[in-house]
Structure formats: C-alpha cells, structure tokens
Computed example of a mutant assay.
Amino acid sequence: MTRRLELDCAALNRLMPMHLALDAAGGVISAGSTLARLIPEAGEEGAQAGDLFTLRHGAAVTSVPDLLAGGGRVHLQSRLRADLAFRGLAVPMGEGALINLSFGIGVVEAVSRFALTEADFAPTDLTVELLYLYEAKTAVLEELRAMNARLQGDKVMAEEQALTDALTGLRNRRGLDLAIEALGTGDFALVHLDLDRFKQVNDGLGHAAGDHVLVQVARILIEECRAGDTAARIGGDEFVLLLPGMKAPEPALRRIARIIERLSEPIAFGAEICRIGGSAGLVLARQAPEAAISELFAHADAALYAAKRAGRGRALLWEPWMESG
C-alpha cells in the first residue's frame, strides 16, 4: 500500500528554500523563498519555467519531461541573469515536477555576491556546514596573512635597526658600508667630519648634554643631505657623509662649509648653551674595490687631520702631501 504525502507551501519552503514546483504545463506553482529573492519573477503569478530558465547548453525548457529526462538531474541557467546558474534534481509531482536547486561548487561565490545567510538554506543542507568551514578557513588565512605581515614588518624593522645608529637615527658603519656597495660606478665624495670642542661639552655638562648635541648634529646633517646622500655616525663624535654624483670639489666643499657654519651655532641644553664646531676631510673618487675604499677612508682621515692642524672649523680636500703630515 502506497501512502500519499502532502506538504503545504510553507513546509516545502522550510525544507527546500530553493525549490521550484511546476504543473504539467511548466507553470510555477511554488518557488522557494531564496530562489524567489534571487529571481523575483519566479514568484509572480503565471510565471513559466520556460521563460525563466534554459537547460544546459542553452536548450529551452519546453516541457516537464525535459526536466525529468536523464534521471532528473538538471542544470538550469537563468534567462534573466547571465551570472546565475543552478544545478538540481527534478522528481515527478503528480503531472508536474518538483525541483530542488542548489549553487553547486559556486555556492561560496553566490553567498558573497547575493549576501546570502544561513537562513537562506535548509537547516540540514550541507551548504551550511560548508559555509562554516569556509568562514573558519577564511579567518585562519586572514590571521596567517596578518601574522606574516607582522613578521615581515618585524624583519624589516630589525634589518633597519641593524643599520641605524640608535642615538641619532643616522646610518651606522654597517649601513654606510652597504650604501657604498650600492653606489655602482658613479662619482662620489667621501667626507669625514669630526666635531670640535665636543669633549668640553661632555666633560663640562655631562653625557646627557653630549647626547643632545649629537642628536642636533644629526638633524643638521639630515637637513643638509639630498635624496640619495648618506649620513652616518661611525664613532662617538665622528660622522661620514657619502655624496653621490660629486665630480668637482667646489660644490662638495661649499656644502660642507655650510654644515660647519651651522654646527658653530649655539645649541641650547636646558639653561645651558653648548658650543661646538666641526672639521672635515673630503676625498673625491669613483666606486672602487674594497681595498681601494679603505684607502679612500685613509685619505679622508688625512684631510680631516690636516684641517684640524690648520685651525679647525674648516673642510679640506685631500692632497698627497697630507699623508706625510
């Protein structure tokens, strides 16, 4: 004995919110709430399946047998929305058919595109579980991306700190070496700058005053540097400037003279006034092997000490006679 089961539209909609119930002529008897939201025309009186959908490969839906053919498995494309396609299962229902539709593997994209929620699917639909898994996976991936960004940021910060003088923010000796390596084959000026009377500040006002002065010196150097220049602190009160593109000594000497003039200006430290100056040695060169770079530093040092012997507060260009001084 076969029992006949009957469901009202509300119960059918609860079980299958993406169903489509058709009469023998292909007219829409009932459309699930989710389907009707996606294709409002499906819920209108007198709607016909043939006006709403085509079968796979564009074949028209001409009759209910079309939908039940091939075991009832159907792939429907919306005639009204080219971006909306479904897969489903059609079963006989009296002389008509009942079709339960889904998005198939496109469900995640559909949920995002149409702002669907859990309420748009049957509680027993595995789609809901898939969405939970997708949300969990997305959350994990976002956290991994955020963690990777933090780690990358920490790495960049650590690399930057390794190349930076902690007190002044200028490049340290390692940072200077890398800047020299990056010069390529162009002309450049190497300047060794040493502060005058800095020891008196440290001895007379203490190391806090000395640190304050060094920070102000760094500020002056940064302000006087062009894009591409490098200012480095390589010792207590010793600084090096790397000036790419310098082919003639006069422009470089003018720039260093301006820096020395600014260093001679009074520096306030609380109620006290700190007075320093600067002396510098300059050498012009082209990029050279490491051994030649050390020779350039030696030349810049010789020019610096020649400037100090000449009375301080000046910059001198290296000349061969300075090596014997």
Results as ranks from 00 to 15, higher is better:
Ala115Tyr: 08
Ala268Ser: 03
Glu41Asn: 10
Thr34Ala: 01
Leu304Glu: 08
Ser112Asp: 14
Arg113Leu: 03
Met16Pro: 05
Pro249Asp: 11
Arg197Thr: 10
Ser63Glu: 07
Ala136Thr: 13
Ser102Glu: 13
Glu129Arg: 15
Ala115Pro: 01
Ile276Gln: 01
Thr62Val: 14
Phe188Ala: 00
Asp125Ala: 13
Ala11Ser: 07
Ile222Phe: 05
Gly235Ile: 09
Thr117His: 10
Glu181Trp: 05
Gly184Thr: 10
Arg233Glu: 04
Ala60Pro: 15
Ile234Glu: 00
Arg233Ala: 00
Leu241Asn: 04
Ser30Pro: 05
Arg113Asn: 03
Pro289Met: 06
Ser279Tyr: 08
Ala307Gly: 03
Pro266Ala: 11
Leu130Tyr: 13
Gly235Ser: 09
Gly88Arg: 00
Gly46Phe: 14
His19Pro: 08
Arg173Tyr: 00
Gly169Met: 01
Arg150Gln: 15
Glu323Thr: 13
Val140Glu: 14
Tyr305Asp: 00
Gln161Ser: 08
Ala139Asn: 10
Leu176Trp: 03
Pro17Val: 11
Glu181Arg: 12
Gly88Phe: 03
Gly72Tyr: 02
Asp229Asn: 05
Val240Gln: 00
Val111Ser: 06
Glu135Val: 14
Arg258Met: 08
Cys225Met: 15
Gly210Pro: 01
Asp125Cys: 12
Phe53Thr: 01
Pro17Gly: 08
Ala288Tyr: 01
Asn100Glu: 15
Met147Trp: 12
His299Trp: 12
Phe103Tyr: 09
Thr124Trp: 12
Leu84His: 04
Pro244Gln: 03
Glu272Cys: 03
Glu6Tyr: 03
Leu141Arg: 10
Gly245Asp: 10
Ile234His: 05
Ala285Phe: 09
Ala82Met: 07
Arg3Phe: 09
Leu193Tyr: 03
Val64His: 04
Arg73Val: 12
Val111Pro: 07
Phe114Ile: 08
Phe103Thr: 12
Asp23Gly: 15
Asp229Tyr: 02
Leu176Met: 00
Leu101His: 00
Pro92Lys: 09
Ile259Asp: 03
Ile222Asn: 07
Ala21Asp: 13
Thr124Ala: 15
Gly184Trp: 02
Gly206Asn: 01
Thr185Phe: 13
Pro17Trp: 09
Met322Phe: 02
Glu6Met: 04
Asn13Thr: 04
Ile260Asp: 05
His212Gln: 10
Glu224Thr: 05
Ala302Lys: 10
Leu284Phe: 12
Arg56Trp: 11
Gly210Gln: 00
Val91Pro: 08
Cys274Lys: 01
Leu7Glu: 11
Ala24Asn: 00
Met18Gln: 14
Arg73Met: 11
Ser264Gln: 15
Asp194Glu: 04
Gly236Ala: 04
Glu250Asn: 12
Gly278His: 09
Thr2Asn: 09
Glu135Cys: 14
Arg286Trp: 09
Asp51Gly: 10
Glu129Met: 15
Ala85Cys: 07
Ala182His: 10
Ala119Leu: 02
Arg312Ser: 00
Gly43Leu: 13
Ala248Gln: 11
Leu7Ser: 11
Val217Ile: 07
Asp301Trp: 02
Arg113Thr: 08
Ala231Leu: 01
